[in-house]
Nucleic acid binder design. Structure first.
Lengths: 233, 233
DNA sequence: CGATCGGTTCGCTCGCAACGGAAGCGATCG
DNA sequence: CGATCGCTTCCGTTGCGAGCGAACCGATCG
C-alpha cells in the first residue's frame, strides 16, 4: 500500500514539530553528542519533559543514544537525518522575510552534521574542484591522483576513508549559500583535520564554528581561500 | 539570533506532522495540482477540515494556491519542498522494517515532484551519463555536445531549458534506490516528453506511473533501458 | 433569477500530549 | 556504606488543535 508513506512521514514530522524537540535536534545538528541534561537546558524545558522528548526522538529513529552507566549521550541517528534537517532549513530560509539568511557567523562557517558548511565549506569544496583535486559527481565523487597526494599532505588517507562503510563523498546542498558543499566520509575527514589542526574551534552555543588566526592563514596557504574575503562578501 | 531556526523548523515540521496533512503533501508530491475537494478525499477528512489544513500548509509556505473563480488548485510551493519530502521518505525507509521499500510499482517508476524517480529514473540518468551525453556535477551538471544533439532528437531543446529561470540540472537522491536521479529543469523536461509521447501515463491514485508497451519499446530503443529487466530486479 | 456547487467560517466536542513536581532507581564517588 | 548525581517514571493540570455538522458566501450555470 502506498498509504504507509504518509503515515510514517507524519510520524517523523510530528516528532520534530514541537519547539522543544526542534531545539534538541538543532543543537545536535552540529554533529556532536550531548547529555540529556544539556539538551534539556538547550530546549528550555525541565529534565522530565526532556526525557520524554528524547525517548520520542529515539523512537522515531531520529536520534541514537549511547548509554554508559548513568549517563546517556545522544546524537543524530544517521546522515539521512542531517539531510532532513538541512532540507527543512532550506524551506525555512526560502519562506523567510525578504533577506534574512541567518546569523552572519552561522553563514560564514558552521558544521553540518559532521562536515563543514557555510561560505567556508562551499569555498573549500569549489577550490578542490577547480584545482582538479576533486571531481564531484552526482553519484558520489572521486579524488584524483593529484588530489590524493594533496589530501595526504593535509593528513587525510583517501584510501582509508574510502574503505569505510560510509559513503565516501557526497554533495550536500548548503541552505544558506544555495550551492553544494562536500559531505560524506571525506567531508567529515576534512572537517576533523581542520579541528585537529586548530584551524577551527567549535562554539559551545551552537553549530557556528570560529576560524582561528592560524586557521585563516592555513586556509589561505593550503587552499587559497581567504576567510577575510568571505567575511566581507 | 540562532534561535530563530528551531522555531521555524518546528513550525514547518508541525505543519506536516499530522496524517491528514502528510497525505495531502504526498498526493501533491507527484507534481500535479489538485482541488481542495480532491485533497479532502485523499486525506480522508471532511471538506471543512481539509480547508483548515490547506490554509495552514499554505501559511507554512509548503503549498501554493491558484484561485480561479470558485475553484482553488493547490500545488507544492517550490522544489525545495519536494526535496524536503524526499528527505523525509529517506529517513522513513531507513527506519522501516528490515526490507520493505515501498510498493513495487512505486519503486519501478514514479514522479518526484516533476521529474522521474524510481528504478526507471535512476536507470535513465545513469545511461545518459554512461553514454557521455550528460555530466552530472555537484553544482549542477552539463549536457555535452553529443548530449544536446541526442536530447534534440528526443524533442528537448537544451538551450531553451537552460535559459529558464530554474536550475537547469540537478541530482536528486532517490529514496528507494539510494542512488541519484536527474532533477531540475532538464529532469522535468525529460519527464514531460515521456508523458507527451505516451511512454508513461499517470495513475489517478498516487505518484506511481505506468510504463506503456510503446514506452517499454521506446526506452529500450532510445536509451537502452529494459523496463522488463528493471521489473525483474 | 433561482439552483447548484466549491469553498470557507462558525460553534462545538473530544482527546492527546506538553509540562513541572515529586518520587524512584541505578551508578558513581567520597 | 551513605551521599550525590543523572535519568526516568508517575502523577495531575492545562491547553491546543483535529474533527464534524450546519450555516454562509460567491461564482457558475441552466
Amino acid at each position: 500500500m502506498t498509504r504507509s508513506s504518509p503515515a510514517s512521514m507524519a510520524e517523523i514530522a510530528a516528532a520534530i514539530g514541537v519547539p522543544a524537540r526542534a531545539a534538541i535536534l538543532t543543537a545536535l545538528f552540529g554533529g556532536g553528542t550531548m547529555m540529556a541534561k544539556e539538551l534539556a537546558a538547550e530546549a528550555g524545558v525541565a529534565a522530565p519533559t526532556a526525557s520524554l522528548h528524547l525517548a520520542r526522538l529515539v523512537d522515531a529513529g531520529l536520534l541514537a543514544v549511547d548509554r554508559r552507566g548513568r549517563i546517556a549521550r545522544f546524537r543524530l541517528a544517521s546522515p539521512a537525518v542531517a539531510q532532513l534537517l538541512e532540507a527543512m532549513l532550506a524551506v525555512a530560509t526560502e519562506r523567510a522575510p525578504p533577506s534574512w539568511r541567518g546569523d552572519p557567523a552561522l553563514r560564514l562557517a558552521r558544521t553540518c552534521y559532521d562536515h563543514l558548511a557555510g561560505q567556508l565549506g562551499v569555498a573549500l569544496t569549489e577550490t578542490l574542484q577547480a584545482s582538479g583535486n576533486l571531481v564531484l559527481g552526482a553519484d558520489g565523487g572521486e579524488v584524483t591522483a593529484s588530489g590524493a597526494a594533496f589530501l595526504a599532505g593535509f593528513g587525510i588517507d583517501s584510501n582509508q576513508v574510502a574503505s569505510g562503510r560510509r559513503r565516501f563523498c557526497r554533495a550536500c546542498m548548503d541552505w544558506s549559500e544555495r550551492r553544494p558543499h562536500l559531505a560524506g566520509g571525506l567531508g567529515a575527514a576534512l572537517a576533523e583535520r581542520c579541528f585537529a589542526r586548530g584551524w577551527l574551534t567549535r562554539r559551545p552555543d551552537g553549530r557556528a564554528v570560529t576560524v582561528t588566526p592560524v586557521g585563516a592563514e592555513g586556509f589561505a596557504a593550503t587552499f587559497g581561500v581567504s576567510v577575510a574575503a568571505l567575511r566581507a562578501a
